[in-house]
């Protein structure tokens, strides 16, 4: 029970600092009732609840986010459209009748006709595949190339890092569009334009960004104690990179790549618009937008429809990237 301290006999005696201090005031010795402050076990193990890996935990927080739900529904829809365009329209996008040039929307042709008299809706549906393909494969290529180079540079350091970092800088020094313009001037590319030339071009200038991110992430992880521990357990240096370092460096790469997928689709459209992207005979949103610019003032909707398809697709991927970033970022998760 609270007791008043009786005057301490030692208080008057000179005391050094290292012998504690005694107050000039009366200090009550208070003890909380044990019933109100029960002792709990030291470091008790939580045994209830389902075990959750980091990914599972991220997934749990992800699936509740509206941003994630909306964007993933849209992306699934876009993938279905790209895979099976004939499910969404029965109109042949290449069947163009000049009489219908710039014709308004009529039954069966909800978005009307473009200058050549082709069905805009049908073209937009069939154009999905090329745009999505460029986005997906460019992303895959940049991730493979960028992660490999970035991880090796960051993990081994030294001269390898210096060389690879400079190599990345060289490609970084050429802005994507400028670089792509040059690439597409190459006879090999100029004469064989296809989605693949665009993919390769974008990947060649896109990988340094991923490599920088991968390098940074790997450097952060490579000195972690669990990597040293696995080396002490007998794991070889390279296997430690594969099994521990790379998996722990993936989160930022995934986030950036998701956003990039959208950015590459825009880049393809821009290249096609400038005239160095997909060949005109391939149906893509970029080509449709480019060919619509001539009659922009007379019939702006010819441009707006494919632009809308494009923007919604890109927006979905960027939103997905944002949602994933929030779910994977430990700082954001704590809600600080």
């Amino acid at each position: 029970m609270p007791e008043n301290l009786t005057p301490n006999p030692e208080a008057g005696a000179p005391r050094g600092k290292r012998e504690g201090k005694v107050s000039n005031y009366k200090i009550e010795h208070f003890v909380a009732p044990i019933s109100e402050t029960p002792l709990q076990g030291v470091d008790a193990v939580k045994e209830t609840g389902k075990p959750l890996s980091m990914w599972a935990e991220a997934w749990r927080s992800l699936r509740k986010r509206p941003l994630f739900i909306i964007s993933s529904i849209l992306i699934v829809a876009i993938i279905v459209v790209a895979a099976l365009p004939n499910l969404f329209t029965s109109v042949d996008p290449t069947h163009c009748v000049l009489e219908n040039s710039n014709g308004p929307a009529v039954s069966g042709h909800p978005m009307g006709y473009n200058f050549q008299g082709c069905d805009i809706y049908s073209r937009a549906i069939y154009g999905t595949r090329a745009s999505l393909m460029v986005g997906v494969f460019t992303t895959i290529l940049t991730v493979l190339l960028g992660t490999t180079i970035g991880a090796l540079a960051g993990y081994y350091g030294g001269w390898l890092d210096a060389v690879l970092a400079r190599l990345g800088d060289v490609f970084f020094a050429l802005p994507l569009i400028l670089g792509a313009i040059i690439m597409m001037q190459l006879p090999v590319f100029r004469d064989n334009k296809s989605p693949w030339t665009v993919i390769v071009t974008l990947a060649v200038f896109g990988w340094p960004q991923i490599a920088r991110i991968a390098r940074g992430a790997v450097i952060e992880v490579r000195n972690a104690d669990f990597v040293t521990a696995s080396r002490a357990l007998g794991l070889s240096r390279f296997k430690a990179l594969l099994r521990h370092v790379v998996p722990n460096s993936l989160a930022p790469i995934i986030v950036v790549s998701t956003v990039n997928l959208g950015v590459y689709i825009v880049a393809e459209a821009t290249l096609s618009f400038i005239g160095v992207g997909l060949p005109p005979d391939i149906m893509s949103w970029g080509n449709d937008i480019a060919s619509a610019q001539t009659q922009l003032r007379s019939n702006p909707m010819v441009l707006m429809w494919p632009a809308l398809f494009l923007s919604v697709t890109v927006l979905s991927f960027i939103m997905l990237g944002d949602a994933v970033r929030d779910a994977l970022d430990p700082k954001a998760r704590k809600g600080a």
Partner: peptide
């Protein structure tokens, strides 16, 4: 997000 998603040339045309 909208600004990033809409290509510059579309934005340019629209503003023009």
């Amino acid at each position: 997000l909208l600004v990033i998603a809409v290509p510059t040339f579309v934005l340019g045309f629209v503003l023009q």
